[in-house]
Amino acid sequence: MILQNLTQEFEQEVSNTRKLLAAIPEKDLGYRPSEVSWTMGELAQHIATIYYWYVGTFTQDVYDLAADHLERGDTNDIVATRAFFESNVEKARVALQSLTEEKLQLDWTMKVGERIVIGPVPRGIVARGFLFNHIYHHRGEMIVYLRATGNKVPGLYGPTYEDSNKGT
Rank of each mutant, 00 (worst) to 15 (best):
L3W: 12
L6V: 08
Q8M: 14
Q12T: 14
R18W: 07
K19G: 03
L20A: 13
L21E: 01
A22S: 15
A23D: 00
P25D: 06
K27H: 10
Y31F: 14
R32M: 02
R32H: 05
E35W: 02
V36G: 11
W38T: 02
M40D: 03
M40F: 06
L43P: 00
H46V: 00
A48D: 00
I50P: 03
I50F: 07
I50G: 01
W53L: 15
T57E: 04
T59S: 14
V62N: 06
Y63M: 10
L65Q: 13
L65A: 08
H69N: 08
E71I: 05
G73F: 02
T75R: 08
N76M: 06
D77T: 12
T81Y: 02
R82V: 00
E86H: 04
E86L: 04
V94P: 10
S98H: 13
S98L: 11
E101P: 07
V112R: 10
R115P: 13
R115F: 13
R115H: 15
I118G: 03
G119D: 05
P122N: 01
R123S: 02
R128S: 11
F130V: 12
N133R: 09
Y136D: 11
H137N: 10
T149R: 13
K152C: 09
V153N: 09
L156C: 04
Y157D: 07
Y161K: 14
E162P: 02
N165F: 15
K166W: 14
G167V: 05
